[in-house]
Amino acid sequence: MIPASFDYIAAKSLDEAISLLAKHKDDAKVLAGGHSLLPAMKLRLMQPKVLIDLGRIRDLSYIKEDGGLIRIGAMTTHFQVEISDLLRRSCPLLPETASHLGDMQVRNKGTIGGSLAHSDPAADWPASILALDAELVATSAKGDRVIKATDFFVEMLTTSLQPGEILREIRIPSGKSKPAQAYVKVRHPASGFAVVGVAVNLSIDGGKCQSAAIGITGVSPKAYRASKVESALKGNALDAKTLSAACAHAAAAVDVNSDLYASAEYRKQLATVYTRRAIEIAAGRAK
């Protein structure tokens, strides 16, 4: 559990971090909360020569709302998201997701940006970020680049962040009506990561589902939008029959993971059941 040797540089500003990254290129990794990176380094699965710590950059950690957007700095910790009054009011899905993530120590150190950049196939954030139609702002020497959540997750542990880019901000359109959201999760008994994690963001009007956005993590090598479920819900009353027909598609059109704990068949079942339960909870909250 001893990492290969590396240099450590604490960047004082985002600009400095960007230029350090440009200088060291593939040899470097940025360090956020370190709760994915350091374990991988201790196992020597990753052996970066230089770590560029973003931890001292104050203006990467914030949660604010302006211009119809909720903006979250990449270095905001899971815990800060969990306790944010602003988010609890206007986007409760995020604090709820945070509350399912790891344990207190992990939430105190780990960051939302670090988790998204790492893109673990069983991480919690990707599900919610997808369900919220978030945008991710990457920055580099060339300036900012805005990436849609649906374009961000490329495959297991791989995002569309380019070499030299740092994830700076997560933007979420702030909702108008009372949010009908929920995050449910089946925790892996060893790792606590999601065997299945379902994030639901609905809008319900006149007893009918006007729109549905459902992000699912843990089930497939990357988190995805359950678009078939979404379209089966849209325009319909969320009765038992609609729900069970819709949720049967929860793991449609994706490669389903299988591991020691859960076979693909069982994961599919969990996805189906928990998608339905998440929708039921979300719909209940809209009332």
């Binding site: 196992l43 008994p189 606590g192």
Partner: peptide, 16 residues
């Protein structure tokens, strides 16, 4: 040995 770390070998936690 495929349960090589505590990510795979499930020791019960207080919540369980």
């Amino acid at each position: 040995l495929v349960t090589g770390t505590l990510m795979d070998y499930a020791v019960p936690k207080a919540v369980m």
